[in-house]
Amino acid sequence: MSRIVCKKCVLDSDMPGIDINEESGLCHFCETYVPLSAKEKSDYLVKMEELFKEYGGRGKYDVVFALSGGKDSSYTLHKLKKEYPFLKVLAVQFDNGFISDNAVENAKKICELTGSDYFKLTMENEVLYETFRKAAESRDAFPRLAKYRASDICNTCISIIKQKLIEEAIVQDAPFIMFAFTPGQSPNPIISLQANFIRWSRNIFEKQLLNIGVEDKGEKFLIKNEVIENMGKEGPRMLHPLCLWDYNEGQILEALVEIGWNPPDLNDSNSTNCTLNSFACQNHLEKYGIHPYAFDIAGIVRSGDMSREEGLEKLHQELSQPLIEEAAKKLNYR
């Protein structure tokens, strides 16, 4: 059967697991999609503000913020502090060994502009390279649905970030953790974390690391068990405000440039901060035939925040060969 592209988003029948209904011309996800209504979004924002009032202002930090220095997280932090200037933010930038100098400069600049504290989370590059190489060499280490959300390399990297940010929030006694997930990336705008679930998700990631051949005995990547044992029953809340705000990539970039954020010189249509991304995408496509950004882009298009044409163009843009070669060399990947 010839390839059919969903009439509404960018998913197509050549992607494993995607069926297009011949009658409606829609993929299963578009057929069952129920967007958050304007009222639901506004209710979530009200709830978020209530949480700020109830739990904020107690300790050194209110928010531990995942700042990559890319466009989404830079924009989210700037808008957050503009709307809620009273929040005390610790912005954490994870140096995965592949963040561009430009992303570091941008992250520092946004922190300076917003009065947020900046913390660069670093690990030994050789350990990270070995871990990402193993992720690239692995097959089926993550559940099938995770393969549609991100590449094996990105799933490994983002899981490390989540684990270490939750740990940091518990240690700092900060009530909120914030990620700049788009509507296509986040399951829920507000997630309360309790010790039970934190422990469970730690164990799930520990198993995934073992699947790729990494035994994290020193808890470099995992939340330290000791931290979970000593936390109270109630943990921090994860907030994803970007999925409640209007999302328009062009406008976001425009707003950022206006405040002095430097557009990246990376030739990667899906990342404005990570030089490993093109390699990770190619590796995932070769292994599974799935573009790791297809679902993310489809979600943004489905929600009406990006045109279908723009989404298709983004999805089919050629990956940068120089970036792929540079990353393969660093990882010693053959």
Binding site: P143, L145, A146, F197, S201, F205
Partner: peptide, 9 residues
């Protein structure tokens, strides 16, 4: 390999 933590939520 059916669910991960995001899938559970």
């Amino acid at each position: 390999g059916i669910m991960d933590s995001i899938g559970l939520l």
